[in-house]
Design a protein around this nucleic acid. Structure first.
Length: 232
DNA sequence: TCATTAAATCGGA
DNA sequence: TCCGATTTAATGA
């Protein structure tokens, strides 16, 4: 295991209030691993033995429905903690985490969670903030799926993606990892065909630009307009 | 309005 | 070239 540098953590919210010496202790207890795209970092219902910090890349959090379809709950960008089942009172992981890109993650044994929370200032408040944010997001999605029309759902899913994981490019914002129509349809409870048709239509209007596994939003405001209530 | 089915085409290893 | 991704059209709920 190569020596990890404290600067990896200093700017991340859960660790930002800590001293160099404390970061050293934390890093010395961490394992670091690199993952190929499409690898499961941890799986739904498996015993939650470790918690993770995504250092680089993007991770898709998916659940499998009783009928066997995958549902993408959310995407996690680099710099966030994941798999902290203990923090929400679970012994198993609530979902599967699959890398969307090549990724690097640190992990610690779950038994250290309490130690971290107790000893490191800001650690638990910051992580509870992310829990809250994610929960709110998932809640919104549940509401959206039952109340909005497909076009609105896909539009808001795209907006959420560029908001969380977008990368600014000269003429718009691009989703920073490979994403298929199928993925988008799983996030919005529709079919890849419908997503494909919507993207084509939006592309004609100059709102988005897409190629295989890449989507770029040129006109977020137009998307926002679609996502807002519009019953015709 | 949208899912489903079927078929054709595209694009990247 | 092969195979998954994507598009398009037709049909029915």
């Amino acid at each position: 295991m190569p020596q990890l540098d404290e600067s990896l953590l200093t700017h991340l919210p859960p660790f930002s209030k800590l001293e160099r010496r404390q970061l050293r202790t934390i890093l010395d207890q961490a394992s670091s691993r690199r993952y190929e795209p499409g690898t499961a970092i941890f799986e739904e219902d498996a015993p939650a033995e470790r918690f993770y910090l995504l250092l680089d890349g993007y991770v898709r959090v998916v659940r499998v429905t009783p009928t066997g379809e995958q549902v993408t709950a959310l995407h996690i960008p680099a710099g966030q903690l994941m798999g902290f089942a203990k923090a929400i009172g679970r012994q198993t992981y609530p979902a599967t985490a699959i890398t969307a890109t090549e990724s690097i993650a640190l992990s610690w044994p779950m038994r250290l969670w309490e130690t971290f929370a107790a000893e490191y200032e800001g650690f638990s408040t910051e992580t509870y903030k992310t829990v809250g944010t994610r929960l709110g997001e998932i809640n919104n999605r549940v509401v959206e799926i039952s109340t909005l029309q497909v076009e609105q759902r896909v539009a808001s899913a795209l907006l959420r993606l560029i908001h969380q994981t977008g990368r600014k490019v000269p003429d718009g914002i691009e989703i920073d990892f490979p994403i298929t129509r199928q993925d988008l349809s799983e996030m919005t409870a529709t079919t890849l065909h419908t997503v494909s048709r919507l993207l084509s239509a939006w592309e004609k209007k100059g709102m988005v630009e897409s190629r295989r596994k890449r989507i770029k939003v040129l006109d977020p405001r137009a998307l926002a307009a679609i996502s807002e209530a519009r019953i015709e």
